[in-house]
Amino acid sequence: MKICVLVKEVPDAAVDKRIDPATGRMDRSGERNLNPYDTHAIETAMQLREGGQLEVDEIVAVTMGPESAVRALHKAVSLGADRSVHVCDDALAGSDVAATGYALAKAVEREAPDLVLLGQQSDDGECYTIGAVVADHLKMPSLTQVVKLDVDGDALRLERQAEYGYDTVRVRLPAVISVGDAINEPRYPSLKAIMGAKKKPLETLDAAGAGIDVALVGAEGSRVACGDFHDPPAKPAGQIIEDENTDETVAQIVAWLEERKLI
């Protein structure tokens, strides 16, 4: 079987994120890294291959992004993907979630994978929705926020993180599955894997090459309009309770929680 893993280059976790007021888009000029959630998706693919219950012939990392996004693919293949596909075209800049999902789906469609994995959210946009959009275009079931994944005969048994516990789901492939960071502990790439990554095939596609209709992508093809951003309101100062008499302190904390109907 073939697994496609969708990956994204995002601002490094150590960088303070800000919206560029001139463009209304995120300022991505600083240090960048592979989206941490996507490393969990790659690890999931690797564990499926190494587990041996499914015969995984190929793991393909797919990204859409500017030229620099090739570094995210470099890391993805050093973590174990066999080859990578980079969809890169100026026409794609400014795509919203729906347009990005469409473009990624077109690139994935060419690969005809049995399973599509991705991180449940990106560290920058945090939309949580790309998996569902891709699945819709590919006409595959979409499973999101998956924190446990086991092979069950010819299907997969998954646990989805739900608001009040877990949903257990059995799904036949093909499917699009987005994973949370609780699903596994991603490995670090070894030095030999890093140095060998450049030898693995990298395919670069422009929009036409990926079969993308440019009218449906980019800022023009996106229906979301961004612009009016505000800082979140400042948090009010907290209340500090001095612990002079523990019984009184506890009573005060309980009263505070009850007042807000938290207990």
């Binding site: 570094r71 470099h74 670090y188 790439p189 030095l191 890093i194 140095m195």
Partner: peptide, 14 residues
């Protein structure tokens, strides 16, 4: 190089 940046970042995370 890209490899060296990835190596440095990997060891930093490690």
């Amino acid at each position: 190089s890209d490899d060296q940046q990835l190596l440095r970042d990997t060891v930093r995370e490690f």
